[in-house]
Design a protein around this nucleic acid. Structure first.
Lengths: 198, 198
DNA sequence: GCTCTACTATGACGGCTGTCATAATCGACG
DNA sequence: CGTCGATTATGACAGCCGTCATAGTAGAGC
């Protein structure tokens, strides 16, 4: 095992995340996922014996890990890190996508929460894990920049909340205005939380 | 006409909004809406000749008007208005619902955006209108409290973004933590935008 | 070469969807 | 009383859904 070079299973999870974040969980059919992944429909039952529920949960988990990795990458690429610059990078990822690809897709974790949080417990838990796994590196980054430990987690929650909300508004308005606005307005508050720093 | 005492038509729009904010747009069937409203299924085609699309759009518009009215009511009930207190009231509406009714339902406008923003143009536009109609009274309230005109609208966008995002996280976590956090963390920034005031 | 496992392929199944056509029913108005 | 419009009732329709059963095809290990 181990070195499977991007197998059909992984492709299906990835495709599921892409379709879910565009059309929602309910509107995304398993046949669509297989077709989008270029994978045989008959493999779905094999790789995901738990059915659609398992596939959706894995897609949500994948999205959470992806978001967390992006935070680490933003941090590594930053020459002079600051909370506002980290938030700006997180926001810019979305303004870039909206302006180049279009406003067709949002966040898969949000879609899963909206569509299945009340009906499918395991998916609700997967979404909660995704948010937690995304928030953790953000909070860690903030403490690394000099934000007191007790404020890092609340500020990370605020950042993710504002970002997710702005993504929704931007999608509805087909305008990145909400995203650039929250980045600008939140900047002084975020940088003001830094205590020590040369 | 005019004095129709909460007719079946209005009840169906209301029921649609309730079901949509719990299960999402796609998972909400027209038969469910009629049953929830205690209305005859055969009436759907009569009152909404535009089909499900029309019903969903009216439900979204209704939700937008409702949110706007709530802002005005919060303002009227406030003895010493301040931006942070207005935001706290908006957040408290949701913490109250989550703690009493449970975490079953979110915001219908968000559900419509997630499920149909990319596939149904009219619904996307209805969601944008709902956000705009909700943002307007918030911005107006801020200027009334002494926030400079050019900052009122951006701050209103930030408030609604953070609120919507926190609602999503709270639903996923089944915990109001995210909501109380954004209310607390955003308070000094909001009140700091007030210029003149006795 | 055989075997056994992993994967693929295909179609059927019941159930649900939104939409529409047709009728029956009601209620007011002339 | 009769009529006509608005509302309700019911069922049919094609289409999609997730799931499952069955069968076919590789491909590695011995």
């Amino acid at each position: 095992m181990a070195v499977s070079e991007r197998g059909p299973r992984e492709r299906m999870v990835f495709s599921a995340a892409q379709l879910i974040r565009r059309d929602g969980v309910t509107a995304t059919g398993l046949r669509d996922v297989a077709a989008h992944a270029g994978a045989p429909r008959g493999s779905l039952g094999h790789y995901f014996p738990g059915g659609k529920e398992q596939l959706v949960n894995e897609a949500v988990a994948w999205a959470g890990r992806y978001a967390a990795k992006r935070v680490d990458r933003f941090l590594a690429e930053m020459s002079e890190p600051s909370p506002s610059r980290l938030f700006a990078a997180m926001v810019r990822q979305w303004t870039d996508e909206f302006e180049t690809v279009g406003f067709t897709s949002g966040c898969p974790v949000v879609a899963a929460t909206v569509d299945w949080a009340d009906s499918t417990e395991s998916t609700r838990a997967a979404a909660a894990d995704a948010f937690a796994g995304w928030s953790r590196p953000v909070a860690r980054a903030l403490t690394g920049m000099g934000v007191p430990a007790e404020r890092a987690e609340p500020l990370a929650t605020l950042m993710i909340s504002a970002l997710e909300g702005a993504i929704l508004i931007a999608r509805a308005e087909r305008d990145v205005r909400a995203l650039t606005t929250v980045a600008r307005e939140l900047a002084p508050l975020l940088d003001g939380a830094v205590i020590r720093r040369t």
